[in-house]
Amino acid sequence: MSRLLLKLLPVAAWLFFTGCAVQKAESSAPQVNSKNSTSSQHTLYQALGGEVGLSAIVDGLLARIATDQRIVHHFQETDIALFRERAIEHFCLVADGGCVYHGENMALSHQGLNITQADFDALVGHLIESMKEQQIPLSTRNALLKRLAPMYSDITYH
């Protein structure tokens, strides 16, 4: 048993580090080709179901926000129709869908809102649930979260 574990440790470490390295290479490559690859099956955007899929995910997200007393107050003065369009554009851009995002950057658009970690966690939870409702596979969900998670610092506590 102990020998098995000792053998497993370096294998696991190798898997994790090469896994991470491969991911970096993959995530930087599509950005170069994003404009040409919108019809390709390989983009995250396509895996999320393209425009139809992303619209459904954002609609599911908005429906969950609307009934969540923890965070709905942040949207009281928000033009929901406009927010919906911007969110779809932004997710599309992030997922290499080649969309033009017409909104402000994450830091500017959340300025003065004092989004807390709890708000951000709640939104992440709703996004995951909405993607699950749309039958988005785990690996695709994780790939999108990987690209959205680093926005935490731009979005919270401003």
Binding site: L15, F16, G19, C20, Q23, P137, L138, S139, T140, N142, A143, L145, K146, A149
Partner: peptide
């Protein structure tokens, strides 16, 4: 936590 790190799984 590393998202999407091994076979699409988080690690």
């Amino acid at each position: 936590v590393f998202f999407d790190a091994v076979a699409g799984r988080n690690v």
